[in-house]
């Protein structure tokens, strides 16, 4: 079963599918606000949720569909 981790940020929810992350670092490099980082096992994690501006760059750059940015209504 795929687990979805939800991280609340001021402007959105960052939904993360850790099991699908291959640790390529593309989202970390793309994020203009250093919201994301790789953990010790090389999987994506949200480190500074409060800085997220909901730009969606991580979602559109992740080749593995591991991140989804759901903007606040």
């Amino acid at each position: 079963m795929i687990q979805i981790e939800t991280n609340k940020t001021p402007k959105c929810e960052l939904e993360i599918k850790k099991q699908w992350c291959k640790g390529c670092n593309l989202c970390v490099a793309a994020c203009p606000r250093s919201v994301l980082a790789l953990d010790l096992l090389g999987k994506i994690k949200v480190v500074e949720a409060e800085k997220c501006i909901a730009c969606g760059l991580c979602e559109s750059t992740c080749p593995d569909f591991a991140i989804r940015v759901i903007k606040n209504a």
Binding site: K22, G23, C24, N25, L26, S60, T61, C62, P63, D64, F65
Partner: peptide
């Protein structure tokens, strides 16, 4: 592979 651009195009 990790970081392969094909997934980005597919999206």
């Amino acid at each position: 592979c990790p970081g392969c651009g094909n997934g980005i195009i597919l999206r």
